[in-house]
């Protein structure tokens, strides 16, 4: 065996080991999806200089306050959430209310992989290979009949399963809620993820289905969706209700508009380290301006942050 072969085998061996570890840490009932369009074919592959954030970081560093305030709490406690069966209550102003089973919805959708940057308002970011379908496809399938102006989402709220919601010192008015303008929701970027890294979503990442709107701060990408409501009135969103001067309805990634707590000019691309914090400049609309800038051409983004 020459040196090159040796190196090849060593690399292959450690890759196999890593893969084995990944499977082991995922043994808690995550499902494989038989067929989906890969990110290369869907047109949403990783863009240099981005590098995928390792699975371990994506699944162990989460904001999901229903399960606690620490970044490690969701990975530890979200497994308490009952995922099966999962139904989504779909309603509209003046329309009727139906409960849609997640499994039925999943069967109706064509899955594709998309690699998106995720920029948290706390000034850290990741690059994640999601698996799911365009939100526009879901909305067309749900068929809201009229042309509503907004779509309003709520996260599942089960006190007995979500220890964070039982905290007496939390000021969040559960359930967590988020909303998009209908033209934002129908934008090609808006995505419903049901998986990441080729498998179904771990509970802490918002299983079984979550929103992903990569040009907005992460808190807009609501997790574990339990209800969808179509409406003509702009809905109140959770963070906006807590601190309206800090969090707006739009929450578009914008390095020019600082959040009172965090400068938004830079972000720490995770994983970072103390000696190499991996600070990179934040891009307008998180780098997705070509797809979404038109949505806001008549909007003062400093006022409507």
């Amino acid at each position: 065996m020459n040196r090159r072969q040796f190196v090849k085998r060593a690399v292959g061996g450690s890759a196999a080991l890593l893969a084995a570890q990944a499977v082991a840490s995922n043994s808690s009932g995550l499902r494989d999806f038989d067929s989906y369009v890969s990110s290369k074919k869907s047109g949403w592959a990783v863009e240099a200089p981005d590098v995928l954030t390792p699975l371990e970081n994506v699944t162990n560093y989460n904001n999901f306050y229903e399960f606690g305030m620490d970044k490690s709490d969701p990975a530890q406690y979200a497994s308490a959430m009952t995922l099966d069966p999962w139904s989504i209550r779909v309603s509209s102003d003046g329309g009727k209310t139906v409960d849609v089973q997640f499994e039925d919805l999943l069967r109706a959708m064509d899955l594709e992989e998309r690699i998106y940057r995720l920029r948290c308002v706390e000034a850290w970011s990741m690059v994640i290979p999601w698996l799911g379908f365009p939100l526009a496809d879901l909305i067309r399938w749900l068929d809201p009949q009229e042309n509503y102006r907004f779509v309003h989402f709520q996260t599942r709220y089960t006190r007995s399963e979500m220890r964070g919601t039982r905290s007496f010192s939390s000021v969040i008015d559960w359930p967590y809620q988020e909303a998009l303008r209908m033209d934002e929701a129908m934008n090609t970027l808006s995505f419903i993820a049901v998986g990441l890294y080729g498998k179904s979503l771990p509970a802490q990442n918002g299983a079984p289905l979550r929103l992903v709107v990569p040009w907005k701060y992460g808190f807009k990408s609501i997790k574990s969706i339990a209800s969808i409501h179509f409406t003509n009135r702009q809905p109140e969103t959770s963070w906006q209700a807590i601190a309206p001067h800090e969090y707006g309805f739009y929450a578009n990634v914008n390095p020019e508009v600082d959040h009172p707590r965090w400068s938004q000019r830079y972000e720490r691309r995770l994983p970072s380290s103390l000696f190499n914090p991996n600070r990179i400049p934040t891009q307008m609309f998180n780098g997705y301006g070509e797809y979404v800038a038109d949505l806001y051409k008549n909007l003062n983004l400093r006022r409507y942050y």
Partner: peptide
């Protein structure tokens, strides 16, 4: 912990 990168993916915040 810092040297061994045991503070998770965002050690700056942890530290």
């Amino acid at each position: 912990a810092t040297v061994q990168n045991q503070l998770g993916p965002d050690p700056v915040k942890q530290l």
